[in-house]
Design a protein around this nucleic acid. Sequence first.
DNA 1: ACAAGTATACTTGTATACAAGTTATTATAA
DNA 2: TTATAATAACTTGTATACAAGTATACTTGT
Lengths: 241, 241
Amino acid sequence: MAGSNLYPEKWLSKASTGDRIAYELRMRIISGMIEAGSTLSENKLAADFSVSRSPIRDALKILSSENIIQLERMGAVVSGLSQKEIEEIYDVRLLIETFVFERLARIDVSELVKELSKIFEMMKVAIKYHDPDEFSYQDVLFHETIIRAANHSYILMIWNNLKPVMESLILLSMRNRFNEKYDDFDRILKNHELYIEAIKTKDRTLMIKSLHQNFDDVQGKVEDLWRSQQMLSEGVEQEND
Amino acid sequence: MAGSNLYPEKWLSKASTGDRIAYELRMRIISGMIEAGSTLSENKLAADFSVSRSPIRDALKILSSENIIQLERMGAVVSGLSQKEIEEIYDVRLLIETFVFERLARIDVSELVKELSKIFEMMKVAIKYHDPDEFSYQDVLFHETIIRAANHSYILMIWNNLKPVMESLILLSMRNRFNEKYDDFDRILKNHELYIEAIKTKDRTLMIKSLHQNFDDVQGKVEDLWRSQQMLSEGVEQEND
DNA sequence: ACAAGTATACTTGTATACAAGTTATTATAA
DNA sequence: TTATAATAACTTGTATACAAGTATACTTGT
């Protein structure tokens, strides 16, 4: 039953078993393959993944700190991501990226802009070659690069807590869009271009505008996610008895 | 060597061994008793606390997620808290409390105000009876109560990541102030009163003002901390060989 | 005296074992 | 049939064991 592998294996090069399992479980939870409300047993998970309880416990601790499961007396109960929580995640992204922008406005951003342009090119290539995973990777990297540029360890800490869930969300959404709504990417690309421009010119209004457009994209992401959840749960309905 | 117990034991009623050790190590690191730059060995810690490596590993994972240590190949290297990082923590507090205030402005806060008034009274009693630990507890609870009222799970997640370090910081600072700068508390109390008033009247300007006064208090906290660090490190200079 | 290679004493990550406690089920009694 | 008590099958948390890898120190040869 450990066969699915929703999370790209090549991104796990130097991850420990516990980390790998956390990545995989996260994808299964966010995709809806593991339903919200169900409880996970350490022993069952250990058997399913053919490992001992140690890495399973590591994984559950990670997922617990990300708010997608809750560690209770008996078993870890899956909270999953409701629409409200997805919006909350983007609240936080908006919050920290706005903060970061204020910091960037005071420093030299030429290096950052160059780096973002590179990532932007990568995103275009990923679209050209129909690679949703690569596109997601670059998309996440784009925002992480901006946040790192602010050189603020506690803002980076928040990002690090948010990143895995965000990444999974984007990954699932993009895989769906590459199949169905291919022309969405024009808008997404345009939006990132605007973002770079805002940082380059330190134009606060433009940055807020592009951030909010990005936020509006969430609605699409959410819809995609629900569709993919439905799709998946139809296939694995009977698996958790 | 497990004897110090900087963290109040009565706050640890239902905590696991790993949690307890995390609380204790956190206090030792933030107080400067464990110096920044030193490396911690799981085996040594296990021996010092007379437990196995399992809870030690749990504790180190927790401290790592709080950015006060870094898990490397060989040993966990202590980052500690520089003045820059303390300011960053307050950046984040400012950020999330401002966000929360905007949310509170749209809902009924009468229950919240009542609760905050109760905590405020508790703080006054704690001062009256010279109890820095109790005062710290209520101070942290005050802000947590405000944040919880916003009913935003991901903002709460950020708070939960920040809280232990904040709590330790406040605890150490308050213990010092009760010895030396006793009249500081008039100002701190006044400030919290202003905060309640701001929430009650939904006066954004007043809230920002009191938040910034609170922020200015940080400077005092930092100075206290440095003094307490110096104090402690003089006493335990030779202990980590 | 110094360079290079080997050996030893660390390190982390995972597996397994055990203790204590909780839930559910089954058996027994009314 | 129903209520209660006892047992069995879970659960988590901690301890211990083992494997694989890394840095330090030591030995050996020149």
